[in-house]
């Protein structure tokens, strides 16, 4: 019952969020600020992680595929598939849920406990629309770009790892990543990313917006936001994979 109550409250929150912004110029300003805070400031960590994980995936695959009957180009093939289908869209989203989710939840939560949200409401501003809608648009617009970069850097990381360790040749790797390539995989990954971006923006916003108490509760809300965002991403990933690939 408690969970159902939260689900209902979450959807009621969304109803307030998706209203026409009260002033477009202010909304535009907020949107660019959110793109910077939630997107551009995550570029570094996403680039770093995807490059090195791509390298590790390639090395692990090379070390585990030591049979002479298995062609070396499968290393590139496996790296490409794992980066595009799962690693970049899903696991980068889980990482973003931690980084961005805690930021969203704690910033909105702090605004709640310091009465800044009340101040918005007293002024006659729809605080949910003002605070959350730019975050949703910013993440849904920017994360596909971020995840596309993660896909590229992951595969590039695999390529660099191969050339540095001599575990496989760059020709084999390049042949492998092009083998049986279906552009739909990119589409699939980007659809998942957009859905996850929505989750990353809204679930932490919900936890932050309805926090009650002080700084301790804001911390708790932030932790809960990250946990629930990750859980929902993993569950949605399961259903989306079934729906889009099966």
């Amino acid at each position: 019952m408690k969970y159902l109550k939260h689900v209902g409250k979450y959807f009621l929150m969304l109803r307030q969020v998706f209203k026409k912004p009260q002033k477009w110029s202010v909304f535009r300003e907020m949107l660019f600020r959110e793109i910077e805070d939630l997107g551009l400031k995550s570029l570094g960590i996403i680039a770093f992680i995807s490059f090195f994980v791509g390298g590790v995936v390639a090395i692990q695959t090379a070390l585990n595929v030591d049979s002479p009957f298995i062609p070396k180009y499968l290393i590139g093939f496996a790296t490409m598939r794992s980066m595009i289908l799962e690693f970049a869209p899903t696991f980068m989203s889980v990482i973003l849920a931690g980084k961005v989710g805690s930021y969203i939840s704690s910033s909105i939560g702090t605004m709640r406990v310091t009465e800044q949200i009340d101040a918005l409401e007293v002024m006659g501003i729809n605080s949910l629309n003002y605070l959350v809608l730019p975050k949703i648009i910013a993440t849904m617009f920017f994360y596909p770009l971020l995840i596309s970069l993660a896909m590229f850097l992951g595969i590039f990381g695999g390529y660099v790892a191969g050339t540095l360790t001599n575990l496989f040749s760059s020709e084999d790797f390049l042949y492998g990543i092009r083998l049986d390539f279906d552009p739909y995989y990119i589409q699939y990954a980007l659809i998942k990313t957009v859905v996850f971006a929505f989750v990353i923006a809204t679930i932490p916003a919900y936890h932050g917006y309805y926090v009650k108490g002080g700084s301790l509760e804001v911390g708790r809300a932030s932790t809960q936001a990250v946990v629930w965002t990750s859980v929902v991403i993993i569950l949605l990933n399961y259903f989306l994979t079934q729906m889009l690939l099966a």
Partner: peptide, 19 residues
């Protein structure tokens, strides 16, 4: 209600300024 609220000014206990 929004129009009425624009006629209201409020000073909060902690200031409630945007950090």
């Amino acid at each position: 209600q929004r129009l009425l609220r624009q006629e209201i000014g409020m000073v909060f206990q902690g200031g409630a300024l945007y950090d």
